[in-house]
Structure formats: C-alpha cells, structure tokens
Amino acid sequence: MIQEPALPPGWEMKYTSEGVRYFVDHNTRTTTFKDPRPGFESGTKQGSPGAYDR
C-alpha cells in the first residue's frame, strides 16, 4: 500500500459535498484546493470551498 506524506502541522484534508478534496489550514483559518505538501499539486482552483469550521 502506498502511503502519502503527512500534512504539515495544523492542516486537515476534507471533502466538499460533491466529493472534491480541499485542505484546511487551522493555523491561518483558511482553506484551499491546493495540496500544501511539497510535490503535491491537487488543482489550480483558489478560494474557499465552504465555511471554515473547526
């Protein structure tokens, strides 16, 4: 089984109701579709995929 590298501290991976993966940075309280791990580009969309909830 291939294991992906861990997200940076304070980051979480979530999915929209449509199943699109996005990332929550709890450090800055922002969201992005761009994977924060080096070498992982998950898309070019920018903006908030939804309300920030902790």
Rank of each mutant, 00 (worst) to 15 (best):
L7R: 00
D53Y: 06
G19N: 04
D53T: 09
S42E: 14
R54L: 09
E18Q: 12
A51S: 12
A51R: 11
T16C: 04
A6W: 09
P36E: 01
M1K: 15
E4K: 10
G47R: 12
Q46I: 11
T44P: 10
L7C: 10
Q46N: 15
T44Q: 08
Y52W: 08
H26N: 05
S17W: 06
A51G: 13
W11M: 03
M13P: 04
T16L: 05
W11L: 03
F33Q: 03
D35C: 04
V20D: 15
T44V: 12
M1T: 08
Q46A: 11
V20A: 08
G39C: 13
D53C: 07
G10Y: 06
D35W: 05
R21M: 11
T31W: 02
D25H: 02
R54D: 15
S42I: 11
D25Q: 02
T32A: 01
Y52D: 15
R37F: 02
S42L: 09
P8Q: 04
A6S: 14
P36I: 02
E4S: 09
G47A: 14
G47P: 13
Q46V: 09
G39H: 11
S48C: 12
Y22T: 02
S48F: 08
K34F: 15
Q46S: 10
P5K: 15
G43L: 09
K14I: 07
Y52G: 14
P5T: 14
R21C: 04
E4A: 10
V20L: 09
M1D: 07
Y52F: 14
T16A: 01
N27P: 01
L7S: 01
G19S: 06
P9W: 08
R29L: 06
R29T: 04
S48W: 07
G10S: 06
T44W: 07
F23A: 00
E12Y: 03
T30Q: 06
T30P: 00
E18H: 09
M13C: 13
F23D: 01
W11I: 06
M1W: 00
A51V: 11
S42P: 13
T31E: 05
V24Q: 08
S42V: 07
R29M: 08
M13R: 09
E4P: 10
W11F: 12
N27L: 05
A6L: 13
E18I: 04
R29W: 04
D35H: 09
Q3P: 10
H26I: 05
E18Y: 05
V20F: 03
G47Y: 05
H26F: 04
K14Y: 07
R21G: 07
G47T: 13
E4T: 05
R21N: 04
T16D: 08
E18R: 05
I2T: 13
R54H: 15
T32R: 01
G19C: 06
P8E: 06
W11H: 02
Y22N: 01
T28Q: 03
H26W: 03
K34I: 14
P5L: 14
F23S: 00
R37H: 03
M13T: 12
F33V: 03
Y15L: 11
G50M: 11
P38F: 09
S42H: 06
T30V: 07
P8K: 06
D25K: 00
S17D: 15
R37K: 05
P9Q: 14
E18A: 09
E12D: 12
T28G: 03
T32W: 02
R29V: 03
L7F: 13
Y52P: 13
E4W: 06
P8H: 03
Y15T: 13
I2D: 03
S42F: 11
H26V: 03
D25A: 01
F23Y: 11
F40R: 11
A6E: 14
R21E: 06
E12W: 00
T31H: 01
K14N: 04
F40Q: 09
E12N: 04
G10H: 04
F23Q: 00
P49R: 09
D53I: 05
R21F: 04
F23I: 00
A51T: 13
I2M: 09
T31M: 03
D35L: 04
F40S: 12
G10Q: 08
G39F: 12
S42A: 13
Y22G: 00
E12P: 00
L7M: 10
I2E: 09
S42D: 13
N27S: 06
F40A: 14
R37E: 05
G43W: 07
P49C: 11
D53P: 05
W11R: 01
Y22R: 01
K34G: 07
R21Q: 08
P49I: 07
N27Q: 10
P49Y: 10
K14L: 14
T32H: 05
Y22D: 00
E4N: 12
I2A: 08
V24L: 11
P38V: 14
S48H: 15
D35A: 07
G50C: 10
E18T: 09
F23C: 00
G19F: 02
K14G: 04
Q3F: 15
D53A: 06
P8C: 02
D35N: 04
E41L: 10
K45T: 12
E4V: 09
S48L: 10
G43Q: 13
F40L: 10
A51N: 06
H26P: 02
P5W: 10
Y15E: 11
T30A: 06
T28A: 09
E4I: 09
R54I: 02
M1L: 10
P8S: 04
G43S: 12
Q46M: 11
G39A: 14
R54Q: 15
S42C: 10
R37W: 04
G47M: 13
K34S: 08
P49D: 14
T16W: 00
T30L: 07
A51L: 11
V20E: 15
K34T: 09
T31V: 04
R37A: 04
Y22L: 03
R29H: 12
Y52Q: 13
T31C: 07
L7V: 04
Y15P: 01
D53V: 07
K34C: 13
Q46E: 11
E18L: 06
P8M: 06
E41H: 14
G50A: 13
E4F: 04
K45F: 05
K45P: 10
R29C: 06
R29D: 02
R21Y: 02
M1C: 02
Q3G: 10
T31A: 04
M13K: 03
E12C: 05
G43T: 12
P9N: 15
G47H: 08
T30C: 09
V20P: 00
T44S: 13
T16R: 01
M13Y: 07
R54P: 13
M13L: 08
F40D: 14
P5F: 15
Y22A: 01
P5C: 14
I2N: 15
G39V: 10
T32K: 01
G47E: 14
V24S: 03
A51I: 15
W11Q: 02
E41A: 09
S48Y: 08
Y22V: 02
A6C: 15
V24F: 04
P9I: 08
G50E: 14
K34E: 10
F33C: 02
Y52I: 14
G50I: 11
Q46C: 10
P8R: 04
D25T: 00
M13E: 15
S17A: 10
P38Y: 07
G19R: 07
Y15Q: 13
G43K: 11
L7G: 02
Y22H: 02
K45S: 13
A6Q: 14
I2K: 15
D53G: 07
E4R: 06
T32Y: 01
P36K: 00
Y15A: 11
I2F: 08
R21D: 07
G43D: 11
Y22Q: 01
E4G: 09
P38H: 10
Q3C: 15
T31F: 00
K14M: 13
H26A: 03
M13S: 10
A6N: 15
R37L: 06
Q3V: 15
G10W: 04
